[in-house]
């Protein structure tokens, strides 16, 4: 256990925790977009920047990645911190002017219109890689990754094709902070729409009520990984006793 100070309050925390974890456990709000407690931190959005003082030296760090240490003094709201967060959200707003989440967050930070020119091809992806981390760490299929480099960087499947390993579960859509990924079940097909790739999945029909209730690939995957007989999914959860 180490002792640290966040915004003037003293806390005890386990050594392997990050500043963000300790702060949120104690009700101190730090804005984030790319952080999710179920996956490893990535430090992409830079909104969680805080000021830390250690051995008399002050610096700005991403709190989602910075581990706590003995005697660390953290301040989550200083003029410098707010300034850098405003710049970050301005850049994100210029990139995704249509994203409501980014708009709201910008508004909260006092930014209504970015000084930067707006991105033209309009998609809502901020490249935070939360979808790819969930796909890899939670779902375990790694169907999507960030591809290309620099200004060409995009979230996509290999060769922008239908992914042979994607199970159509929609976890990427569920976790996306800016709602850049969406899916819709139309009849017997699930259409998963990503900024640069669209994929279709066949849905399974419940043998009792006839409702299409989940992608066939997802059910096959669950059956395989959990060691359940595939027939267990012939009936939808609503029709089970």
């Amino acid at each position: 256990m180490v002792k640290l100070t966040i915004d003037g309050r003293e806390f005890q925390a386990e050594e392997e925790k990050t500043i963000l974890e300790v702060a949120s456990e104690n009700g101190i709000h730090i804005p984030t977009l790319c952080y999710h407690e179920e996956v490893s931190p990535y430090g992409a959005c830079r909104l969680c920047m805080v000021e830390v003082t250690r051995k008399g030296r002050k610096r700005l760090v991403a709190s989602c990645l910075y581990p706590v240490a003995e005697g660390l003094v953290v301040r989550t709201e200083t003029p410098e911190v707010n300034n850098i967060r405003r710049t970050v959200i301005e850049l994100l707003l210029a990139r995704c002017p249509d994203s409501e989440v980014v708009q709201e967050m910008a508004h909260d930070l006092g930014v209504d219109k970015p000084i930067f020119s707006l991105e033209e091809d309009n998609h809502k992806c901020i490249l935070c890689a939360l979808c790819t981390r969930v796909c890899q760490e939670v779902v375990g299929v790694s169907a999507i990754t960030l591809v290309n480099r620099g200004v060409d960087r995009q979230m996509a499947t290999p060769f922008y094709d239908f992914s042979e390993v994607c199970i159509g579960c929609g976890s990427c859509s569920f976790v996306c902070p800016t709602r850049a990924i969406s899916f819709e079940d139309v009849g017997d097909t699930r259409v998963l729409t990503m900024p640069h790739v669209t994929m279709e999945f066949k849905l399974k029909k419940c043998s009792k009520c006839g409702k299409y209730w989940a992608p066939e690939r997802q059910l096959e995957y669950i059956a395989k990984t959990a060691g359940i007989a595939p027939e267990a999914f012939d009936i939808c959860p609503d029709c089970r006793d």
């Binding site: 790819t132 890899q136 790694s142 999507i144 591809v147 499947t157 290999p158 042979e164 390993v165």
Partner: peptide
Amino acid sequence: VPFSQLYSIATFFK
């Protein structure tokens, strides 16, 4: 190794 990871590497390096 995930196919996506290889594609990511192949498109990252010039």
